[in-house]
Write a protein that binds this DNA or RNA. Structure first.
Lengths: 333, 333
DNA sequence: TTGCCTAATGTAAGCGCTTGCAACACATTT
DNA sequence: AAATGTGTTGCAAGCGCTTACATTAGGCAA
C-alpha cells in the first residue's frame, strides 16, 4: 500500500500563484512582508496543492535546522520526564522540534547519539547524563550548537549548565538528620551517577559534625522498587539496625517502606526513610515520603530560555544556572 | 561564547584524502565498496578534520531522512513510556533518529505536529493518540511516510495499526466481574480517550448477562492519583455502595486504594478495585492491584518491525497487528 | 595481442529551499 | 521635474550531499 511520491514543491506553488519561488518562501517564513493580495494568492495555491514545506531543504539552505536534541538515560520511569516534557513543549512553542535520544544506563550510547545529533546539525543539544567521552566533548565544543548540561552543575561545563548542586543536597540531608537526632544513617546509592555526589555531601557534613563515616550500600542504576525491597532485607538484619536510610530515589524509598510495613516496623520511629525526587507517589502513598524536591520542569524551561537568549544574539552572562532544591519533611523521616 | 562556524565538508575531506567527494560519500554510506587502501586514506582524513557528515544535505539529496516522528499525548507519567522507549531504542539500532512530539491532552497539538513531522520528511510517523483531524489524515495519506497508529485497532487505519481491542478488554473485565460474583460495578473512565471503548465493552458484556447498566463517573484525562481519591469519596457515599470500581488507569486505582485504606475499608471484601496498565506500582504496592497488562514495549517493537519490512520493500500483509492483553488477578479484586 | 569483464573511482547534475542583491512601482520631498 | 525613500517582488547562486552514468585500470580468456 505504498503511496506515490507527492512532489509538491515550492516551484509548483509558485507557478500556480504566478509568483516567484522567493515569494512563496517568504510567505512561509515571514508572511508579513508580502502584500495582502499576493499573500492571498499564495495561500490559495498552497491550499489547492496541499503543499508541505520541505524543512530539510530549508535547513540546508538557511543553515538552521530548528531541531534540538535531548539526550536522556531513559524515559520509562525517569526522574527526568518532567524536564523532557517541559522542554519539548516550550520548544514546540518556539517552532523547534525535539529529537529524543536514549543514552541508556551508564550512558553507553551517549557518544554515538551526540554524533548523530550533530549530524542533523541541531541548533542545540541538551544533556542530562554525564558526558565523559573526550571525542564527544571535543565535537560539541567545536560545533555551532548550543550545549546545555542539565541536572548538575559541573565545574567546567561544555557550554552552559542548568541544575543544582548534588553535593549540597547531601549536606542538607545531613543537616536534617542531625537536627532530628538520627544516629545511625545508612546510605543507599546508585553507582556511577550523581547520587555519588550527594553521598559525598552527606558524608562530608556528617563527619564534620564529629560523627563516624556512615555505612552504605551501592546499586547499579537505575534504582527501582525491587532494589528498595532487597535493601530493606539487608538493612533489617544489621545490628545495630540503622535508624535512617537515605535513598537515592523515591522508588528505592517506596520499596523499602512497603517491606517495612509488611515486616511491621514503625516508620519513622523504628526506621526512617528519605527519598529523592519528590515523584508523585512520594506525597500520595502512605506513609508519605520525606524527600528532596527538584523542579524538573523548571530545569527544562530554563534550558529553553538559554536557547532563546542565544538565538536573540544575547550574551549568556553565567555558565551556571542553579535552580536549587528543597527538602520536604513528611511522614517517613 | 559562540563558536566559529566549523565548515568541514565532504569536499574538505575529499581534498585531504586526494579522492573525489563521491568516494568519501561512499565511505560514509557503504564502506565495503571502497578498496581498503582508499578507505584508509579517507578514514584518516576524516579523523584529522573532525568531519561530521551533514545528514541534512544527505537527506535532501537522497530523499530519505532516517527520521521517525513519534507523537504521544505526554511523557511525564505516561502509560506509553514503555512503547516510546522500546521504539526509540529499536530505531536507533537501525540508524533512525526519533523526534518526539507531545500532542497534549485531547491531542490538541496533533495536527500541527503532524505537519511539522511531514515537513521534516520523516520516513515514518507513529501515533498513539487518536487522529480525527481530516486535513491531517489527508496529509498523512498523501505522504510517502509509513503511518503507524498504536495502542488501538481502528477499523480503518490510515496505514497500519498496532495495538489491541479496548472493547475486548472491557468484555474481559465484565467476564471477570461476573465470574467473581461482583454485583454493583462502578465505572471510572477518562473522557475522550480509548477508556470509553473499554467502558462500552464492559457495559455490553455486562448487560448481555442480564444485568442493569452500571453507574459511571467520567474524568478529564489524564487520570491521576488525586482523581482516584476524589472518586473514592464519591463512591463511598453512594448507597448502595458499589462493590467493584473499574478504573481506567492504575493511578486512579492506586488513589482509590490509598483512600480506602485510610477509611478502614477492607479490600477486596468491602470494596474491590481493578486498574489498567499494570504499571510498576500495581504489583509493588500493598495491596497489589488487579489490572490489565499491556505489553507496551512489544507495541513499540512491532511498530518498528513494520518499518523494517517496508524499507525492505516487503508488502505488509495485514493492516492490523494485535498484541493482545492479559488480565492479572491480584489482591485488589 | 585484442577484446571483454569486473571492480574502483570520478564527473556532474541535481535535491528544494533561502537570501543578498537588483529591479521596479509608487509616494513623498525638494 | 528630479531626487529620494519605501514597499514588493524577482533573479540566481548557492547550501552539502547522493547517485546515475562515465571512465579507468587491471585480470583473464581467446
Amino acid at each position: 500500500m505504498r503511496k506515490a511520491r507527492a512532489p509538491v514543491t515550492l516551484q509548483d506553488v509558485a507557478d500556480r500563484a504566478q509568483v516567484s519561488t522567493a515569494t512563496v518562501s517568504r510567505f512561509v517564513n515571514q508572511p508579513n512582508v508580502l502584500a495582502e493580495a499576493t499573500a492571498e494568492r499564495v495561500r490559495r495555491a498552497i491550499e489547492a496543492t496541499g503543499y508541505v514545506p520541505n524543512r530539510i531543504a530549508g535547513s540546508l539552505a538557511s543553515n538552521r535546522s530548528h531541531l534540538v536534541a535531548a539526550l536522556v538515560p531513559d524515559v520509562a520511569q525517569s526522574i527526568f520526564n518532567a524536564t523532557i516534557e517541559a522542554m519539548i513543549s516550550e520548544l514546540a512553542n518556539d517552532g523547534y522540534l525535539t529529537m529524543l535520544g536514549l543514552t541508556g544506563i551508564d550512558n553507553v550510547r551517549m557518544a554515538e547519539l551526540v554524533e548523530a545529533a550533530l549530524g542533523q546539525r541541531v541548533d542545540a543539544i541538551i544533556l542530562t547524563g554525564i558526558l565523559t567521552d573526550r571525542r564527544s566533548r571535543k565535537l560539541l565544543r567545536n560545533s555551532n550548537a548550543t550545549v546545555i548540561e542539565t541536572w548538575g552543575l559541573p565545574a567546567d561545563p561544555i557550554d552552559v549548565a542548568v541544575g543544582f548542586s548534588h553535593f549540597d543536597v547531601g549536606v542538607e540531608i545531613a543537616r536534617f538528620a542531625l537536627d532530628r537526632g538520627y544516629d545511625r544513617p545508612h546510605l543507599l546509592s546508585a553507582r556511577g551517577t550523581r547520587a555519588q555526589e550527594r553521598r559525598d555531601g552527606f558524608v562530608d557534613a556528617w563527619c564534620a559534625a564529629g560523627r563516624d563515616v556512615p555505612d552504605e550500600t551501592f546499586f547499579d542504576a537505575p534504582t527501582r522498587f525491587g532494589q528498595g525491597r532487597a535493601a530493606f532485607r539487608k538493612v533489617a538484619k544489621m545490628s545495630p539496625r540503622p535508624d535512617l536510610v537515605i535513598c537515592s530515589s523515591d522508588w528505592l524509598a517506596q520499596g523499602l517502606l512497603v517491606e517495612a510495613a509488611s515486616a511491621g516496623l514503625k516508620v519513622p520511629d523504628e526506621l526512617a526513610v528519605i527519598g529523592f525526587g519528590n515523584l508523585a507517589m512520594a506525597s500520595e502513598m502512605r506513609p508519605t515520603i520525606t524527600t528532596i524536591e527538584i523542579d524538573g520542569g523548571r530545569i527544562g524551561r530554563e534550558a529553553v530560555e538559554v536557547l532563546r537568549r542565544r538565538s536573540r544574539g544575547e550574551e549568556i552572562q553565567s555558565r551556571h544556572i542553579d535552580v536549587g532544591f528543597r527538602l520536604i519533611a513528611r511522614d517517613s523521616a
